[in-house]
């Protein structure tokens, strides 16, 4: 069995990878998702060509399996992070894979805001920018939180896969000890820890979403 320190370090690496990648993915995915909604045909600033181009890019990135994508963009990872393996380096492929996913999650949350509310804001002379930041995002906040919980769990899944390509964290433990050395016990513990982390993220996300939603008052 591994030392508790090693387990703690692996867990820390996983959390670090997941949280930073999620944050960066939202930094890219949130504006991208908003842009997808705003420039859509019935959106508040329809721009069909831009919308089509963004849609295609998102779809391409979404259709490549994470492991293959991570290997494919190794040169880019090296250029950005200075190396291709290790926890910090993994943040690059995780973000590239997750940002389009996040964009789609954001898009679907924002589309839940009833058109009437947008129309009301337009009737008051709101600019598209004001509609986005004062209507769409605040009104979709609970749904965005749910999307956030789902996204972070997905990214955690990717990060575990990253174990196969030297990503570090719990995934690497499971791969190195469980898969390569047939140590079923260690693999099981790694999996259990991952499951617990997923549970925590999911429960916290849902609780936050419910708590933030003023419609449930």
């Amino acid at each position: 069995m591994l030392s508790p320190e090693l387990w703690a370090q692996s867990l820390w690496e996983t959390l670090y990878m997941v949280i930073v990648s999620t944050a960066v993915s939202y930094l890219i995915g949130l504006p991208l998702g908003l842009l997808l909604v705003v420039t859509d045909k019935g959106g508040i600033r329809p721009m069909p060509p831009l919308n089509a181009v963004l849609g295609v890019i998102v779809n391409i990135l979404r259709s490549i399996p994470f492991l293959i994508l991570a290997v494919m963009i190794t040169p880019m990872t090296r250029a950005i992070a200075g190396k291709a393996i290790g926890t910090t380096a993994m943040i690059v492929p995780l973000t590239v894979a997750a940002a389009p996913y996040v964009a789609r999650m954001v898009e679907s949350s924002i589309k839940e805001v009833p058109f009437g509310v947008i129309e009301a804001a337009q009737s008051m002379g709101a600019t598209p920018w004001q509609i986005v930041w004062k209507v769409l995002v605040p009104e979709a906040k609970p749904s965005l939180m749910v999307g956030g919980a789902i996204s972070i769990v997905t990214i955690l899944g990717y990060s575990a896969m990253a174990g196969f390509i030297g990503g570090g964290g719990l995934g690497t433990v499971a791969v190195n000890y469980g898969y390569n050395r047939y140590n079923f016990e260690i693999m099981l513990v790694a999996v259990i820890i991952i499951v617990i982390v997923v549970q925590i993220f999911q429960v916290c996300g849902m609780w936050l979403a419910r708590h933030l939603d003023k419609r449930n008052r």
Binding site: P114, G116, V117, A120, S123, M124, P138, D213, K214, R215
Partner: peptide
């Protein structure tokens, strides 16, 4: 000013 059948208030405010 404009008012609507479904009121269209911001639900989170």
């Amino acid at each position: 000013g404009m008012i609507f059948q479904q009121f269209n208030l911001l639900q989170q405010r």
